[in-house]
């Protein structure tokens, strides 16, 4: 973490790369790729929606991994990464819900159709928001780290259960989109955007965990060698 205390080059490089990929990918997706046969122009939101969904799952996995790593190692760099993962995960989850609603309105005629993926994203978004609130309300850094790790693990374990229960509850939806089920003309913008969001997300996480670990190193500073009044 403290390897490069000066200008954080890596996060900036990742973010720049991500923005370039997103710009090119979105241009290709919006103007170059042909409209989809059945769904027409609406389908173009998939060029950003599907990559967001993949990366959202990655960010949840990252947060879960960071939480497990903290509980096993008690190393605060994992707490900083957890904080970054939770915030980026909440952001992507929010974007995903918005995009899902925008996609659902012209396709199914409703903003929200209780699709298992959309619903379990919303449920996990609420969990992450709750954990971020918990972070604000616990002052002692080690206690805060433990409680948030525990809550993250519990919430992440819940995700598949929520997914399957909502699917049983409301069984209607199309197959999961992946490059395999989409024809080859759509591959390039989808892949470019997927890497774009991946780079942008990694940059955000790297930057955010750097900020968090700077704050933590202040909070966890060792006691001063001697008190000023004792020197006098």
């Amino acid at each position: 973490m403290a390897a490069n205390p000066r200008f954080p080059k890596l996060p900036h490089a990742l973010m720049t790369l991500g923005v370039i990929c997103l710009l090119v990918g979105s241009y290709l997706g919006l103007f170059v790729a042909p409209p989809e046969h059945y769904m027409g122009e609406v389908q173009r939101i998939m060029y950003v929606h599907v990559p967001t969904a993949w990366n959202w799952m990655l960010s949840v996995l990252f947060a879960f991994g960071a939480a497990m790593a903290f509980l096993f190692t008690s190393d605060f760099k994992w707490d900083a990464r957890l904080e970054a993962g939770l915030e980026v995960g909440a952001l992507l989850g929010f974007l995903l819900c918005c995009q899902g609603a925008i996609w659902a309105k012209p396709t199914w005629g409703v903003w929200w159709d209780w699709d298992p993926r959309l619903t379990s994203t919303a449920v996990l978004l609420c969990s992450f928001a709750g954990i971020l609130a918990l972070r604000r309300f616990v002052d002692d850094p080690p206690k805060r780290a433990v409680l948030c790790s525990v809550a993250t693990i519990i919430a992440a374990v819940d995700l598949p259960i929520v997914y399957f229960s909502v699917r049983w509850w409301n069984s209607l939806h199309q197959m999961q989109s992946s490059p395999a089920t989409v024809s080859s003309q759509f591959h390039l913008p989808l892949r470019l955007n997927a890497f774009g969001i991946l780079f942008l997300m990694s940059g955000f996480i790297a930057m955010r965990s750097r900020i968090a670990s700077q704050r933590l190193s202040e909070e966890l500073a060792p006691p001063p060698q001697e008190f000023a009044e004792e020197l006098a």
Binding site: V123, L124, C126, S127, A129, G130, I131, A133, L134, F137, V138, D139, K143, L147, V150, A151, I154, A155, D158, I161, V162, S165, V166
Partner: peptide
């Protein structure tokens, strides 16, 4: 047990618990 150690416990407990027990 977790929220009893935090501030704003009354708000935090349902905030954390409700999404979890959707299933």
């Amino acid at each position: 047990a977790m929220t009893s150690q935090a501030r704003a416990k009354q708000t935090l407990l349902p905030l954390l618990l409700f999404p979890l027990i959707v299933p």
